[in-house]
Design a protein around this nucleic acid. Sequence first.
DNA 1: GGGGTTCTTGACCGCCTGGTCAAGTCGTCC
DNA 2: GGACGACTTGACCAGGCGGTCAAGAACCCC
Lengths: 198, 198
Amino acid sequence: MTTNGRKLTPRGKERRQQLLDHATQRFAETGYHPTSVADIVGGVGVGKGVFYWYFDSKEQLFLELLAEAQRDLRRTQRDAIASEDDPLRRLEIGIRAAFRWWAGHPEIMNLLQFAATEKQFRPALRQGQSVALGDAVTHLKEAIAEGRITDGDPEELAHAIIGLTGHLSRELVHRRGDDPERVADLAVTLLFDGLRGR
Amino acid sequence: MTTNGRKLTPRGKERRQQLLDHATQRFAETGYHPTSVADIVGGVGVGKGVFYWYFDSKEQLFLELLAEAQRDLRRTQRDAIASEDDPLRRLEIGIRAAFRWWAGHPEIMNLLQFAATEKQFRPALRQGQSVALGDAVTHLKEAIAEGRITDGDPEELAHAIIGLTGHLSRELVHRRGDDPERVADLAVTLLFDGLRGR
DNA sequence: GGGGTTCTTGACCGCCTGGTCAAGTCGTCC
DNA sequence: GGACGACTTGACCAGGCGGTCAAGAACCCC
């Protein structure tokens, strides 16, 4: 569908999705390289040829996972933000939507983190990240123009936001199992007012 | 020395270090798995047996890199902080020291990030991280007790600090090549006073 | 029930990997 | 110069990998 051009019956789409899901779990738990194609098809209970019916290669499957996840997160954020005009509120709502999304997709974090460590995957990762960055930068620029936040390079501030929210998702929501809404509160107040508060 | 118990002459220690250095670079650039032992010894220009004279396995070499890096960063922070009493200042100096250290060891960031994505390496990573966390928590607790920062779970705040500083190191210092001191300023003011400032 | 397409099987292939080892060289102390 | 460790070599190995493919099963429309 996305890269491997093939007509798929409903049954075919389901198989394909099974493979994607299983691969995601395995990659997240064990790692990309230690997970063999044999592991993936074994987990689904099908022959090896099935994998290559739906995907060109293990690498292509991984790239598709990356792209789809980034697309989905962004869509979620856009929908959440759509009805809000105020830039600072948009930023806040986007952050909260991100926490909620990450809470529902803990495995993806691992995939993204892994993608950053290998040459062949970095470009694909970068692409999605720069989109997220751009979204945040837009709101930050507006907020700065309105004098609502202190002046500063919006791109740098956006990186700070992404870094903080990503890490808190990993450590508090995924690892510790904390409530994403509560952690989002923490992130927002911390980002807006800092450790010393107002 | 650390795990592989062997007497090393000065020449031996140098070889060993050569291998460690080369492996670090390759792992960071290409990734752990795609870098073969043959690549590593080839880069140093020695036979394969040399590798296994100094290390038990590729995995052990990697674990040693992890442990040594975490130890070194912590030592650097401790030394920087030693002469300061004020908890908030200790926190700030620790953050600045971290930025300086990361600026000098960009490759390590990749190794840590990779280690987080694979089952076998997560425990080793976790260990070092919890030490860093503990250090930050200590200062935060003191600062809270003195009423210098708003009340909150110190562990959560520490995670926020680590996440923000780590990401800014990666994105601004390593990727964009920004001056670490300037980025440290940004991180400190942002963490203490937030986007809205005081 | 014929025929076309989608889907599935699993033996098979070439390749490369981490790791071994018998053999040899180097350095140095007596 | 001999002898004893510290080091080095590179051919070699078993095993696992990603990927292929000829053969067949399942499904569906006529």
